[in-house]
């Protein structure tokens, strides 16, 4: 495998020194199987120890290394350098989020939303372990399994202009995860979750741009989840209109 040189242009923003962000260019030798994250690691180890970014697993599981690569939200561990051969690769912090330093963005807003949708199985009454597990068929699993692949990398938020315009929007990943529990046959928390996803800033903000589903590195389709959530919301609303009491 031969070695080529990649030119990488990275956003630098150091709040203690810089009033404004700027781009810094680095040259990185690379092999065919190297990804953008390897290049960042090379820079940090060999050229500039102060370059700041997040990462951990390097295998698309931990969801911490997202960045905008040539304008598109991607995991840096899943973007090969050779795909940009001959071009300067621009690496910027994920769009829409406030930047703490260089490529590191503030995740607080997403973390709050994640907690808000209560991403765990809610039971009206827990049964003791001796009574066995909550069983589920393969078919029941299939109803939500794709949405449980979410790794909270927030790329879908970076891709969502609606979130960019209005950060109150619950957004793709959180809504998809809420839907994941709504569809889980073991979960009994619909009464709790519906109000969260069906309030104005819940699913309704979404206008089906669909880019969330395009950028998801795990093949999750948040757009689908949001749309199904809306359909649930609309049917619930109509039901409650027809049957004001027992409807929901």
């Amino acid at each position: 495998m031969s070695q080529d040189i990649a030119t990488i242009r990275v956003t630098r923003y150091r709040p203690e020194k810089d009033a404004k962000p700027f781009f810094q260019e680095y040259k990185v030798p690379y092999r065919h199987d190297m990804v953008v994250l390897d290049a960042l690691n090379y820079i940090k180890a060999e050229i500039d120890g102060s370059l700041t970014y997040r990462w951990s697993c390097r295998m698309g599981v931990c969801g911490s290394c997202g960045a905008n690569i040539d304008g598109e939200p991607k995991l840096t561990c899943a973007s090969f350098l050779h795909e940009f051969k001959g071009r300067t690769i621009t690496v910027e912090p994920m769009t829409h989020f406030p930047v703490i330093k260089d490529l590191v963005v503030d995740m607080q807003d997403f973390m709050e939303k994640l907690v808000k949708i209560k991403p765990w199985i809610i039971r009206e009454k827990e049964t003791p372990p001796e009574q066995g597990e909550y069983k589920q068929s393969a078919k029941e699993l299939e109803r939500y399994s794709q949405f449980s692949s979410c790794i909270n990398c927030m790329l879908c938020y970076a891709a969502c202009p609606i979130y960019g315009l209005n950060e109150k929007f619950l957004g793709p990943a959180a809504t998809a995860l809420a839907y994941r529990y709504i569809e889980d046959s073991r979960d009994q928390g619909k009464e709790v979750r519906f109000p969260i996803v069906h309030e104005m800033e819940g699913a309704w903000e979404c206008t089906l741009v669909g880019e969330c589903s395009v950028v998801c590195p795990k093949g999750v389709d948040p757009m689908l989840a949001i749309q199904k959530t809306k359909i649930l919301g609309a049917t619930n609303a109509i039901k409650s209109l027809l049957m004001p009491r027992g409807g929901r």
Binding site: R14, E16, K44, G49, R54
Partner: peptide
């Protein structure tokens, strides 16, 4: 050894 990054904010080095 040296830590090149002397910042307080998010000093991963």
């Amino acid at each position: 050894a040296i830590v090149e990054d002397k910042d307080h904010v998010y000093n991963t080095e």
